[in-house]
């Protein structure tokens, strides 16, 4: 198990989700220097923005419920990258986008796009086996898409049984078609 997975399991234990700056904070001692927060300003070109939006929508498409674009996931991803990730993560993300640009992703039809993402998914599995401080493009893209969607107001209400104040705690049996509870 690599360091990242180790930390993931711990995050599971504490019910938290992993984030890059947590790793950086842990490395503070190793580096013995302050974390450079004023990392190079991050922004996407119009073309890259379109690709991010299309990929997010393919991960969480609009079905009988709202999709990634409907709830603002593309802008959320850009904001998160800028505010919560460091330059090496930015770079790896941009490399992923560049490879999609080279494939002329936006000009591909639906089936070809799906093929391209499937291929990327397979490559990511191999990449994840190599210990690294950064996350492959596909993995980060997917994490931020799911996070943005499943914590958005419309995403939560469409996907889960949202209970703000449970008021009690009990063991229950699943109902038919039971959704996850979100709190």
């Amino acid at each position: 198990m690599n360091r990242r997975e180790v930390i993931k399991s711990v995050a599971l234990m504490f019910g938290g989700t992993l984030s890059a700056p947590t790793l950086m904070a842990m490395n503070h001692w190793e580096q013995n220097s302050p974390i450079p927060t004023t990392s190079a300003a991050f922004s996407l070109t119009e073309q890259q923005r379109k690709i991010v939006a299309e990929v997010a929508e393919m991960i969480i498409p609009r079905t009988n419920t709202v999709g990634a674009k409907d709830v603002g996931v593309p802008a959320f991803i850009e904001m998160m990258l800028k505010d919560c990730y460091l330059q090496p993560d930015h770079q790896r993300f941009l490399e992923g986008l560049t490879s999609l640009e080279q494939l002329k992703f936006l000009e591909l039809n639906e089936g070809e796009r799906r093929g391209a993402l499937k291929m990327m998914e397979q490559q990511t599995k191999e990449q994840m086996k190599v210990p690294s401080k950064t996350v492959p493009f596909w993995r980060l893209m997917k994490e931020l898409t799911l996070l943005g969607y499943f914590t958005s107001e419309a995403g939560i209400k469409a996907s889960f049984e949202y209970v703000q104040i449970p008021g009690k705690l009990e063991n229950i049996k699943l109902k038919p078609n039971q959704k996850l509870y979100a709190y």
């Binding site: 984030s19 904070a25 503070h28 302050p34 996070l147 914590t151």
Partner: peptide, 24 residues
């Protein structure tokens, strides 16, 4: 930021954010 630590928090709370979730 949906529970994630921002770079600003990670810098200001460089010790506290070593603990799970306290940077949120």
């Amino acid at each position: 930021h949906r529970g994630k630590t921002t770079l600003v928090s990670a810098e200001e709370r460089w010790a506290n954010s070593r603990f799970w979730g306290l940077g949120s």
